[in-house]
Design a protein around this nucleic acid. Structure first.
Lengths: 338, 338
DNA sequence: GCATTTCTTGCAACCGGTTGCAATATTCTG
DNA sequence: CAGAATATTGCAACCGGTTGCAAGAAATGC
């Protein structure tokens, strides 16, 4: 059905090479042949088969886009930015949903079979070993929203989750909260682990503060709500909670209100991400903003750079986060001790 | 870098055909050769290049997954179900973000170049002509969430939006609302047009009912909020609104509450979709449920069927919707006239 | 105008597989 | 055990392109 090189060549009365060359950037073709070929091509509606050419060029311009998070609304934005960013550079995302998969082996094999030029792992929960599996298979890989390592084996673009944990604590302390808790995402998520670790480190440096923590089963509304309901019924709650992320926070908010308590009057809340919904009037969540667009832009830049230079030394690009003030924390104390 | 057929053949001491055959379902290979080949293959870590084979088989097992909606949280669920469903059948989604694109020509060409086996257009807003462009290029195509046509030119899987419009009206009438309005999505979206059309048709059959309608600029929270704020400030509001979809409803809800009014006491609200968020305790939206999972499952079944039988007569598969009772409408009137 | 240099062009081999066909090997039949 | 039927195998051509190379054409220098 589709028109091939040969047909165009025949109609234009030139060799197949000539046709190939007119469609290859920077190849040597005279204006005359180029015109003949282009005319024949448009008449026939020809466009070159990208896969056939990949066979010799070794480039498919396809990028594996892998994620295990298809439930957190923030990832819709992530997919939007990734797909557009890749498209703008002439790359095609081959989407892989890892939800039911624990082992990278299958994805590695699959992406190998499709000879993708590179792989982007978009996940804040997958362990580093995952991205490494792709690197070990010889594919350029970037782990977006991944865990920061001092001597990374793989390119990582994201935030410093430990620093975020500390930032949350300092923000809460500055507002006079003294009984503080971390309500994290799943215990197995690297982002949860790091945020908790930062949270605890900063707590250890603060006198007279009571810390506590627990985990929700997922970065999801229901998980946050369920965990908060448990906390509210089992013991007196903390004065303020640092939640693993924004969706979780919204679930927590819902639990608190269901319980007849008010935010921020009875309980303070700070999230992480600054997803669109955090700004909705009935949510109005104070949160730590993660610069998603920059992370994604940088990830794409990095993967593009690796196409040219596959052996680039692994690099961790971390972006600063900042607190976005909204309505779920009481205002900062008037006269801080410092 | 990657291992090729030839290397496996050499190591196993057989011809290249033999290797190819061991990896081809139902090809004739003796147990002995198969074992030799399999051993050599695992030793070398070989897996066949899907793109090279596509050249002769004419099948890439890639499906173009096209959408123009990367802002409505419901589409995250849509992508989740599509990617998993396709993966389960050994198909790979090549994701195309149409957000900035008005003309199908580019996407058609691109998907042609990558010789996808089929195309799924997932959009409730794109006109039929869009899916048709793919069909005209000779690709099997299914339009999911698309507009129902009596004599379709292209396979459509979705709901009857006109019927949904009527259903919304009947539901509101049954609850005693008499001044009713439709607050639709973008005027250009086919789903908006059809829902409005059903709304108006049913209204025309109802005596003593006052109808009104307007449009939001997008299926999005802010758009719904903005439009509702406009309505509230310009004139006395209707008693109840049928909103174009759930995100829109949530924006509308937010506007109403900001305005100091209560739902459902002052204003009733019914959405469409039954997205996960509709069930969140602080939303609790009464809505018309669209069976997304069935629509997607059916879409995938259809595209798979078309791989075998490309000239299948176009078919419209419409799924019934139902009202999900929650807290944004007052209860049905006790003694209806019938 | 002729020798040189630089462009174009087609040939042919190749990318990594698949597949029809004929030759060979194996199994079955009586 | 011979002859026929069936299975397995490798050869070679092909899928739709790209590319090194050498030959021919055009442009340049003097």
């Amino acid at each position: 059905m589709p028109v091939t090189l040969r047909e165009v060549a025949e109609r234009a009365g030139v060799s197949r090479s000539a046709v190939s060359r007119t469609f290859t950037e920077g190849a040597s073709v005279s204006l005359k042949t180029r015109q003949k070929v282009e005319q024949a091509a448009t008449e026939l509606g020809y466009s070159p088969n990208a896969l056939a050419s990949s066979l010799t060029t070794g480039r498919t311009k396809m990028i594996g886009l892998i994620s295990d998070n298809f439930h957190n609304p923030i990832f819709l934005q992530v997919f939007d930015l990734f797909t557009r960013g890749l498209q703008d550079r002439g790359l095609r995302p081959l989407l892989v949903n890892l939800t039911d998969e624990i082992d990278p082996a299958n994805s590695v094999r699959m992406l190998q079979q499709y000879s993708v030029d590179g792989v982007i792992v978009a996940s804040s929960t997958l362990p580093v070993t995952f991205a490494r599996a792709f690197r070990d298979a010889g594919m350029p890989v970037v782990h977006s929203f991944g865990r920061h390592a001092t001597s990374p084996h793989v390119h990582v673009v994201g935030i410093d989750n430990i620093a975020c944990g500390r930032m949350a604590v300092r923000t809460l302390i500055a507002r006079g909260y003294r009984r503080i808790a971390f309500l994290g995402g799943p215990k197995s998520a690297t982002s949860t682990q790091d945020r908790l670790s930062g949270f605890l480190k900063e707590m250890a440096e603060q006198p007279d503060v009571e810390a506590n923590y627990s985990f929700a089963s997922a970065y999801a509304f229901e998980a946050g709500r369920a965990e908060m309901i448990r906390l509210l019924t089992e013991a007196p709650p903390a004065e303020a909670y640092f939640c693993g992320d924004d969706v979780l926070s919204i679930g927590v908010l819902s639990a608190i209100r269901s319980h007849g308590l008010r935010v921020p009057e009875d309980i303070g809340l700070i999230g992480l991400n600054d997803m669109e919904m955090a700004g909705w009037q009935n949510v109005d969540l104070t949160t730590i903003r993660q610069p998603i667009d920059e992370i994604i832009k940088s990830s794409i830049d990095l993967i593009v750079a690796m196409l040219k230079e596959p052996d680039r030394a692994p690099e961790a690009r971390l972006f600063p986060c900042e607190v976005v003030e909204r309505g779920t924390l009481r205002p900062p104390a008037r006269s801080p001790s410092s």
